[in-house]
Nucleic acid binder design. Structure first.
Lengths: 341, 341
DNA sequence: CTGAAAGCGCTTACAG
DNA sequence: CTGAAAGCGCTTACAG
């Protein structure tokens, strides 16, 4: 593999000059630039990113931290139904990162969970920035990260600082769209099985829903509002409990699509047909929600925009251009799981 | 952040000595070792992995390449139902990598798809090895990788060389277990909607199934054997076509759990009840297959073992200890989607 | 516009 | 057992 020295020799210039054309420095004669370019192509030269990282004190890697409330691994939670949504998010992030020439890194963290160790390991790896996805808001690493000044984008959670912004869906508005749609179908007694309300997104969805109903003078029966974990299993059980006690509602709003899948099964087992007996809605619009029976009415999070904006704004932060937080709109998707009363 | 120079000064030794105790060299006096260790802890020293990579010409990063027949991105395919299985695989890989102190890298590949570029970018990043997951066997990068001598583990596909091994499930035996179970329930006319037979795993599953039936003197009706893409949608459609033509079977074997989910919906739409009218089986045992109605009988791939062995054997390859390919057993999981004739 | 030199933080023969 | 020195492949003031 050719080095900048090889290129310099072939082009008859110094390594400094090679470096300058490589980095697009202005003060280079056209002639030198041409010779260097020629040499680079004949030698198939590609700069050594490790050496660059060492001297620049910064790599072109973005660290990914996600979902690790559970056991400290980034991908660990992905297999759980609670997090299927984030898979979509991840692919959009990867795509955006690649188009800006950033690698994605899943750092191993052998030395315990002290947040300082986490930060140090990021610094030692010279990561340019980090994307934090779906962490619990109390994760101690968040504070350390904000203090360390590593450029950071939080997705789906709050968090700001000089070098940090956040990107989230407009959960309240999403819930409003769903509520208005159900109201338009004539539903008045509506049950709600949401995610854990310690989770901001879950809380916002509940609030948005309540407020939209209130606007029409309808209030949610507190006993018809339940919560469960984000995963399919817990939602399934919560639905069972609810159905054991109450049946006097015509629509049921689930906190997420994957929760809706569990709830669908519970309804099924209670011999309730969807949407004939009960209308059911999800949240997120994961791919799978097209394949339930019936397919789910839900509200789509715009993962593509979120991923692209996350990387672009992170790049701006890295390059010192500054960036602001963003709230991304959602879109109602009507399918077969909802119908008129 | 402290450097080895700082440690050396505080401990009253040279950087060479610091480096030696860091790397566990034998020829170090107990006293020097103790002083260096003391200095390292008071300074909270951690070696700079970038500098190490540069001089050792090798990092502690393992590159991940997966699923990118589609558009060149590693995570792109994960969101599709066809690949939900690999999410499980990934988390097991990450866990194993972390426990051996390897980072995982998702390299961006801006410069087109030439396999040489791919290899060069891995070399420039000094990756220690690569894990290849679920690529199509004709992917040109595979050959280049084998030639370049970068330690590689192929998961779920063949491929061997001096520095490469493969790890796969025993698909034929998995299909045999399924066949024998269905036979024991009294099924004789069985339909099969498998994955694309250009895919080795799909082919092996079909063969294993056929052979197990043949042992009992039963042959699969060729017209009852169909194939579709691995995803939910295509399987759904294939099932529709099949059910439009034939109904004279009592069991249907799907090529994967996610395919089974699509097929389940088609059966539903044809007013066929599972398992009363037709028994249905999946493959893989993804988390979701517990939550279909009814839950799926399937055969579990041991992702945990596969992930752990992949990383451990890759580490062996990296360290020049050598390693051999591995076939991992599967396990029948009986749930509600199958019943007696 | 361009080159010589120093330096990024480590490791590793080479001597002793 | 240990240190001085060279080197990994780049970038960047500093001069000119």
């Amino acid at each position: 593999m050719a080095t900048s020295e090889d290129v310099a020799q072939l082009a008859g210039v110094s390594r400094a000059t090679v470096s300058r054309v490589l980095n697009g420095s202005a003060r280079i004669s056209e002639e030198a630039r041409a010779r260097v370019h020629a040499a680079m192509t004949t030698l198939e030269y590609e700069p050594d990113v490790v050496a660059q990282s060492l001297v620049r004190r910064r790599s072109r890697m973005i660290a990914l931290s996600l979902l690790d409330q559970e056991d400290g691994f980034s991908l660990a939670g992905l297999g759980q139904t609670a997090n299927y949504f984030y898979i979509d998010m991840l692919r959009c992030i990867e795509q955006a990162a690649a188009s800006l020439g950033y690698d994605l890194l899943l750092p191993s963290r052998p030395r315990g969970k002290h947040p300082e160790n986490y930060i140090r390991s990021l610094q030692m790896r010279r990561v340019a920035g980090t994307i934090m996805l779906a962490l619990v808001p109390t994760d101690p690493r968040i504070q350390s990260l904000l203090q360390a000044g590593i450029p950071t984008v939080f997705i789906d959670m709050m968090g700001q600082g000089d070098h940090a912004i956040s990107i989230r869906s407009d959960h309240m508005d999403a819930a409003r769209q769903l509520a208005e749609y159900l109201l338009s179908l004539g539903h008045r007694r509506i049950a709600f099985i949401g995610g854990p309300t310690v989770d901001l997104a879950a809380m916002e969805r509940l609030l948005g829903f309540q407020q939209a109903l209130a606007k029409t003078g309808i209030s949610l029966d507190p006993d018809l509002v339940r919560q469960s974990g984000w995963n399919t299993e817990e939602a399934y059980q919560a639905a069972h409990v609810l159905l054991g006690q109450r049946r006097d509602f015509t629509a049921l709003v689930a906190g997420s699509d994957l929760m809706a899948i569990g709830i669908l099964r519970a309804l099924h087992e209670h011999n309730l047909q969807v949407p004939r007996d009960i209308s059911l809605t999800g949240f997120d619009d994961v791919v799978l929600s097209q394949y339930t029976a019936p397919p789910l009415t839900t509200v789509r999070q715009d993962t593509k925009t979120m991923g692209r904006e996350a990387i672009e704004r992170l790049a701006a932060l890295i390059e010192g251009r500054g960036a602001t937080s963003l709230v991304v709109p959602t879109q109602l998707v009507i399918r077969g799981s909802t119908g008129p009363v």
